[in-house]
Structures are given as C-alpha cells and as structure tokens.
Amino acid sequence: MKKTEFITGSFIALTLVVLLGIFFFQALFQPSYEGKVMPVDNVNLKNRVSLHYVLKNVNNASKYLAMHGMRYFNNRSSVPSQTITYGKSKNLEEGSANEVTSIVVNYRGFDTLGEVTVLFISIIGITMLIGGVVEKKWIKPSLIVRTGSKFLFPFILLFGVYIFIHGHLTPGGGFPGGAVIASGFLLLLLGLENYRFNTKASKVIESLAGLTFVCIGLIGLFTKNSFLANFIPTGTVGLLYSAGMVSLIYVVIGIKVGAELSTGVAELKEGNKND
C-alpha cells in the first residue's frame, strides 16, 4: 500500500468519525419535543419486547396486540401475565428457568442457528487459511504440566458437559460449555508431547450435531407447522427434565461447539494433514 493512499484513507476516516461524533452528541443534548423517544430521558425499560420474554407471556401479548392494535405499543406492560414460581409452575409456553436461554434458544432460536453457522464458517476459514502455523514454536512441557493436564482433563470435560446440560437452568449454555471442552483438548495438545487429536472423528461429530440442530427445527416444522417450534412438553420450571427442545438444542450446540473449537485448535497446531 502506498503512503499517499494511506494518508487519504485516514483523512476520510477521521472526517467521517468527527461528523458522526458531532451528530451523536447533538442527538444526546437535543430537547425532546420533536420526537417522543430519546436515548437519555424517558427510557422505559418495560416498553421493550423482551418484557414478554421475561414474563413468558408472548402468546398473551399476541392476542392483546390483535385486540387493541396501536394502543399495545405504548403500554406493553398492561398485557396480563401469570406468576411463575420456581419448581412449581407447569406447562408454560416456554419452560426454561434461565431467561437468557429462553430468549437465545427459543424465542430467537433462528438467530442462534445463524450464530452457530457463523462459528462453523469461521473455523472452516481459519483451518483452511492458517492451519499448521503454531507447531514451530512448540516448547517441551515440564513434568508438572504433563501430569496436571492428564489429571485435569476429565474434570474439565465433565464441567463443560455440566454447563451445557444445565444451560436452561443456570447461567451458561452451549457456547460456554463447548468452549470449556475445547479448552480441555487445548490443554492436552499443549501438555502432552505425543498426543494426536482425532480430527476426523471430531469432524464427524460436529457435522452430525449441526445436522441434528437443523433436524430439531425441521421436526418442529413438520409436526407443529413452524420451524424450530417446541414439540416436547415444557414440564416444570427449574427441573432438569424441562424446557422441551431448549435443553436438547443446548446439548447439541455444546457438542458441536466443543468439537468445532477443538478441531480448530488442533488444526492450528498440526495443520490439516488429511487434505
């Protein structure tokens, strides 16, 4: 890249940033008589769609919207909702105790399918373009690391599995659980001298897990007439066997992310030799 090109580019970028900054501050300090909604004053957190996700009354809200029309949007919190008791409420429209999970996997599950694909395609790109660059700098591990990684590996694996199995009850879920599992394999790759990660098996597991996610969605499409619709009873809030397909999807995501990240880490170290 030529130097002049760079200077022009940075000048344009600086101008844009300054213009946008002026715009931003002007919006913050302008009196709110022109439009109703402002970023600083009058923000009503209860007037967001996520309110219904938290109260699990989306179906009620749909009926309310059809009945009242425009009036609904100004006053979302007037939609009737029932009290949810941990460990007691049964057969709600959405059964996970963890609110974030209920949004990520159920109400906006399609986005999560997209995010899984983003991770998938990123790992494909990384292994395709920069596979096998790390091996040169590998240092022989000490005795403590060798023993410790062997000892810790099963516990790390168990913890990862625990996180994604309890994704609908406690903070965490498929993505963190998978990352924990991958960190266990990373420890083995760094700590053991002649450890060979089975990339082929991991790829098979990853592919089948991804297929299962889409198939869960398709089962919903064929039985409940809507993609990613819940087709399993939701059960009691707070139990392990609850939340219907949410827990199932999180297990699948956990396995997929774990296999995927492990493959990525292993191929960064060893390069994809099977190609």
Partner: peptide, 8 residues
C-alpha cells in the same frame, strides 16, 4: 419461526 407471532 417457532410459532411466535411477528413482533415477538
């Protein structure tokens, strides 16, 4: 998608 009507 998911039997949740549009704005939700």
């Amino acid at each position: 998608i998911g039997n949740w009507r549009p704005p939700f």
